[in-house]
Amino acid sequence: MTLSVETPAVPELEDAVDPNEYEDAEIVGDTDYRRDDLEALLRDGAWEDAFVEWRESTDVTEAEWEVVLDLDLLSHFDFFWDDFADRVGYHAPGIPEDWKEREIHPDVDSWKTVSSINAGLTELGQTVCDVLKDEYITWESEYEAPEDLPDF
């Protein structure tokens, strides 16, 4: 399935949140999250490349995409460098579990819609990370493993 929509603006990455505060991320050790570098790479084409790749295979419908835009969910994406794991980490925004009580959008009326949007945004986040790491990042991890690790 192909989603026929324009590529949205690159999300602005801010240092306001420590990635360890996210339920779905754990960063070991002190690290420079390199958000400025990642945002520059996103602006240099990584966001466009990843979005084009993602929209070619996503199951998100155009109606669901409109909900994403209406709720400005993309502005809540976060991408950060995890030096220990030598990877780009991310936090994907989503529709909260209490969506029924909060009546957050008139077109959010089923768990199917919520699930589709949340899964789609997670897949977009992972695609962005993969494109950044595979095609844009040229730096090496600065983490050095201790020399006293056992041989297996």
Results as ranks from 00 to 15, higher is better:
152 F>W: 10
107 D>G: 07
61 T>M: 10
89 G>L: 05
11 P>T: 03
129 C>Q: 05
149 L>D: 11
77 F>M: 01
12 E>N: 08
63 A>T: 15
72 D>C: 02
52 V>Y: 09
20 N>P: 05
147 E>M: 12
148 D>G: 10
91 H>E: 02
110 S>C: 11
49 D>E: 15
152 F>L: 08
113 T>Y: 01
74 L>G: 02
60 V>T: 11
69 L>V: 13
61 T>N: 06
81 W>F: 12
47 W>A: 03
31 T>S: 15
137 I>P: 03
83 D>C: 09
46 A>Q: 02
34 R>G: 00
132 L>Q: 05
55 R>M: 03
5 V>C: 02
112 K>P: 00
9 A>Q: 08
40 A>T: 15
121 L>M: 09
21 E>A: 14
82 D>W: 07
71 L>P: 01
65 W>S: 05
67 V>N: 05
60 V>P: 00
28 V>E: 15
115 S>C: 09
133 K>C: 04
76 H>S: 06
1 M>G: 11
68 V>N: 00
58 T>A: 02
129 C>Y: 09
103 E>W: 09
38 L>H: 06
56 E>F: 09
15 D>P: 02
9 A>E: 12
45 G>T: 12
110 S>V: 07
139 W>L: 06
135 E>R: 15
121 L>T: 05
37 D>Y: 15
80 F>I: 00
146 P>F: 13
110 S>H: 11
